[in-house]
Design a protein around this nucleic acid. Structure first.
Lengths: 153, 153
DNA sequence: CTGAATTAGTTTCAAATGTAACTATTATGT
DNA sequence: ACATAATAGTTACATTTGAAACTAATTCAG
């Protein structure tokens, strides 16, 4: 008969730790490009996706960067207003439109990428090369498993 | 003269991966207690802090769970409205008030903790006992390092 | 073909969040 | 002691975000 009271130590609780770590890292990076370039996190991610894989439709973008279509739509609207992204109609399926960076957008992207990589490199200084691989592997497995749990709990 | 174009692979980029993983995990957990108990993530975290360390002042809570004072204030307001948290004035310093769970709040806390721990255990199934330790250690070091970077970049 | 169901994407409205200003109280310097 | 600064916490306002409704175009079933 086990009537033990379970204790939750929030500071050691995995979901909490991941969330706090991710938030700190994401905010620190955001500080780097928000000031000079005035991008939100979602806008930057959309640009990163387009910088690498354009042309993409809005849904493609959403799939790549795990972002729902409303968020993508708003980010794209902002980026188009600033002339960083262009849309060209898809003649085969007129619901779709493929997106790509403008020259101005490409230039901004090319400015930010090295900053982002430098930031990542600085972060990684906390870990050895081997540990970096380990961390990435563990995160990947955890992510895959969490997705499974999500879909049939 | 190195004019190489740097490429950012978002899906392998550490800040991005951490963020997506943390979000998935946090949402999955939230799904478990949001429905039955109608708590937001911040409200749940405040309850978790109080369940373990009460009495705490609002600032104490904020420090423990890395949440700014406005967020704490709002979460506490919601929890008090529902009779889950009580406030008692501090006579030494009348700016402060110490917070603690009511019996009703304690009961809810006692319901949720096992759910949360079970969820964590399910998550951890993706990893061996050794890997869990490794992951926690790596996250901790990364977190400490990221905090350093933040303060003098 | 035609009408129901899907899909892409946008808009709308409400709730959540961040920033700054504000109140009340306590601490500090001279 | 008294003005000034600092601290605890709340409120107000603007911005962001999320969920659901909506428009437009396409697919599919019969």
């Amino acid at each position: 008969m086990s009537s033990e009271v379970q204790v939750l130590e929030l500071e050691k609780f995995l979901p909490y730790r991941l969330s706090v770590l991710a938030q700190l890292v994401s905010e620190s990076l955001h500080d780097l490009y928000a000031g000079p370039y005035g991008l939100s996190v979602t806008q930057w991610r959309v640009m990163a996706a387009l910088g690498r894989f354009a042309p993409l439709t809005a849904s493609d973008v959403g799939q790549r960067i795990v972002m729902d279509k409303v968020a993508v739509s708003r980010a794209v609207a902002g980026l188009m207003r600033r002339g960083l992204v262009e849309r060209s109609a898809d003649l085969d399926d007129r619901r779709r439109a493929s997106l790509h960076l403008t020259p101005k957008g490409r230039a901004m992207h090319a400015d930010i990428v090295p900053m982002a990589l430098k930031f990542e490199a600085e972060l990684y200084q906390a870990l050895s090369a081997e540990e970096r691989q380990t961390l990435n592997g563990l995160c990947e497995r955890l992510f895959a498993h969490a997705k499974l749990l999500r879909n049939r709990p």
